[in-house]
Design a protein around this nucleic acid. Structure first.
Lengths: 212, 212
DNA sequence: CTCTTGTTTAACAGCTCTGTTAATACAACT
DNA sequence: AGTTGTATTAACAGAGCTGTTAAACAAGAG
């Protein structure tokens, strides 16, 4: 008998992977049990081990895919050539929009960094490379503008932290708060997030205006 | 025979509570086992149940104490009377300094909100009350300045989110990142945090300057 | 039809976790 | 010395977790 076609949607193998991705993204490595993944996929938990050997290997696949997406999301941020203010604004907004499409990603990566950093070991070079590229790009456009006296003198490292922390924490803290105060969840959440994107852009731009 | 003096430092009861607080703050409810607490306190895990009945009740005590501290930390922020810019700056800085003394608190509360919101059920009225006081105070001083035309028109809700998210995420994200990239941990961390406090104050103030 | 091969299940092994309990050690008071 | 109540331990029960395995099942090949 031939192997089942892996491209076939809804075959056991991809159903398991889909379930695993949903649960790992929502709850992280430790809080997700192989039994729960199997249940969600509608199979026995022995199947996970049949297809993927171990929980750690399933997680590695999920992490791989999602980390790739996260790292790739930074590339369109670094568009050279456009005027400074435009580059800045579209950078922040591109990053925020990406998170809108992957709202669970920041908390997922944070959780992994906090409690399972060893599972990130293999990815460190790739992360470092992307981080270097983004900081390099960022430092260069910021320092150029500072040198030309067109923006206020600023530590680029801190400014980058400002942007990243503001963008990420919208998706990390608001959903958590909504768990406790449901009135900020659901419909209202998307409104708050839209507002936040605008606010973050305004905030960062204000930080850089030369004359105050 | 009389009960042991609970005030006596190093008696079993307080050793357990100390160990529980350390571990719960570090790892949250689910990732902390009663066995680990007992081990850390140097006793059998049967002792936890003898003194505190259940894991949930020990956690409730730890949560109680730490939530009290967190909520109390907002009170000195709301000093009325001082000039606006001074009030703003000292508010941010007081909050940040409090977190410096309790660096694990933000991640602990976040974790509880994310994964054990039911354990916060009893605390909701208290949290709500403090939140209302802080937002009320904040809205009033911001709106007064806007009305007087002394600061830029701004949504106070978003501004408060800016401040809280910036302050909290310094203590949530940086330690997590340090797990993966040790070069930002240890000595360097305190430096970064000092820089961040200054940066956050500058950032928020820039946001409000009327002329840009 | 039977053999083969990939898929699936049920059962189990070994571990860890929370919580209980019976037995014991111990201090104090009579 | 004997009684009483607290403190502590070791052992266990029951549940859930990860991972294994032997056996059942399904379907194409000869």
């Amino acid at each position: 008998m031939k192997e089942k076609d892996i491209t076939e949607k809804n075959c056991t193998e991809v159903r398991i992977m889909d379930a695993a991705e949903r649960l790992f993204l929502k709850n992280g490595y430790n809080r997700t049990t192989t039994t729960a993944i199997a249940e969600q996929a509608g199979v026995t938990h022995a199947m996970l081990h049949y297809y993927y050997r171990s929980k750690e290997q399933i997680f590695a696949r999920v992490l791989d895919k999602n980390l790739d997406e996260l790292l790739a999301s930074f590339h369109p941020v670094m568009k050279k050539g456009a005027p400074f203010w435009e580059t800045l604004e579209s950078g922040i907004s591109t990053h925020f929009d990406f998170l809108m499409k992957h709202p669970e990603l920041p908390a997922f990566i944070l959780d992994t960094m906090r409690f399972n950093p060893e599972l990130l070991e293999n990815h460190k070079p790739r992360i470092r490379k992307t981080l270097l590229r983004i900081t390099g790009f960022h430092y260069s456009i910021i320092n150029d503008e500072i040198a030309a006296g067109r923006i206020r003198k600023t530590d680029p490292e801190q400014l980058l932290l400002d942007i990243i922390m503001l963008n990420l924490s919208a998706f990390i803290m608001l959903p958590a708060a909504a768990n406790v105060f449901p009135e900020i969840g659901g419909k209202r959440m998307t409104g708050i997030l839209e507002e936040r994107k605008k606010e973050i852009i305004t905030l960062i731009k204000s930080r850089l205006y030369r004359e105050i």
